[in-house]
């Protein structure tokens, strides 16, 4: 456990904190990758997922796409793009966007799919236009699962962003690789602790957000459903699925 305290000591050492090469700046880079990539991925994946969820078309393609990406090794993708785009932030960012798309896409369409068909049918029978059905029924009811997908994407990217240093893309991985090549375990460990804490904090924040966005009526007095499982997956709580961390 002494080694562990060496890692903590590395974090607390002010010489490792400030400046462009300090861990505070690197942590910022890690966060910038995370939210940058997830934002770009969301702009692409959310409308696409909504389209699939609303029309039901292309569902099989979306499912196999998001399933297949699970096996894609992120390190390989990063390095391949790094060879193509050169070192720097572009290859990591593109890699992370690609990684974040499948869970967000899945969250978007699964959110729509989980809605009771009778509710949609009733909305249509009341005289809602298709756009109103999407905006007033499907989007609010699908929000918890969409946030779940975004949460998965965020956690996946924040974990994988550690690899950016491999193609000179900065972020906290810099210290890990440096620690490895110079046999400085305290440095690698300190950065690892930072990445882990960052991931756990983001996880906590998203768990909270997910709880907040569940429409009130959906959680209101949930009937106990041990027996018959409702068509709606329980929207809160969840295990982020990450591939290629």
């Amino acid at each position: 456990m002494n080694l562990f305290f060496d890692g903590i000591a590395w974090i607390l050492d002010s010489a490792n904190q400030g400046g462009p090469g300090g861990w505070i700046a690197r942590l910022g880079e890690q966060l910038a990758y995370t939210f940058g990539a997830v934002a770009i991925a969301a702009v692409i994946a959310v409308p696409l997922g909504y389209l699939v969820g609303h029309t039901g078309r292309g569902r099989d393609l979306a499912v196999s796409l998001s399933g297949g990406f699970r096996a894609l090794p992120s390190l390989g993708l990063l390095i391949l793009l790094g060879l193509g785009l050169g070192i720097g932030f572009r290859a990591p960012l593109l890699t992370f966007v690609i990684l974040a798309i499948p869970p967000i896409l899945a969250g978007a369409y699964a959110g729509f799919e989980a809605i009771d068909r009778k509710t949609i049918d009733a909305a249509r029978a009341l005289g809602m236009t298709e756009l109103q059905i999407v905006g007033r029924v499907e989007v609010p009811l699908g929000l918890p699962l969409l946030i779940g997908g975004i949460r998965s994407g965020v956690l996946q990217v924040v974990a994988t962003a550690t690899l950016a240093a491999y193609v000179s893309g900065g972020a906290l991985g810099v210290f890990i690789f440096e620690g490895f090549s110079t046999r400085n375990y305290a440095e690698a460990l300190g950065a690892s602790i930072l990445v882990t804490v960052l991931a756990l904090v983001l996880e906590g924040i998203f768990a909270l957000i997910q709880r907040l966005v569940v429409p009130r009526g959906v959680v209101a007095k949930e009937p106990t459903e041990i027996r018959t499982r409702s068509s709606r997956p329980v929207a809160v709580a969840g295990l982020p699925a990450q591939e290629g961390k």
Partner: peptide, 30 residues
């Protein structure tokens, strides 16, 4: 169709109420 549906009341089995809206807003939907 949309206009037509808004001037015809429709009641279905299992009520088909919107789960995320309060009773009063469900009634006021149309």
């Amino acid at each position: 169709p949309v206009k037509l549906r808004r001037r015809i009341g429709y009641v279905m089995q299992n009520s088909g109420l919107l789960p995320h809206r309060k009773v009063i807003d469900n009634v006021a939907t149309v």
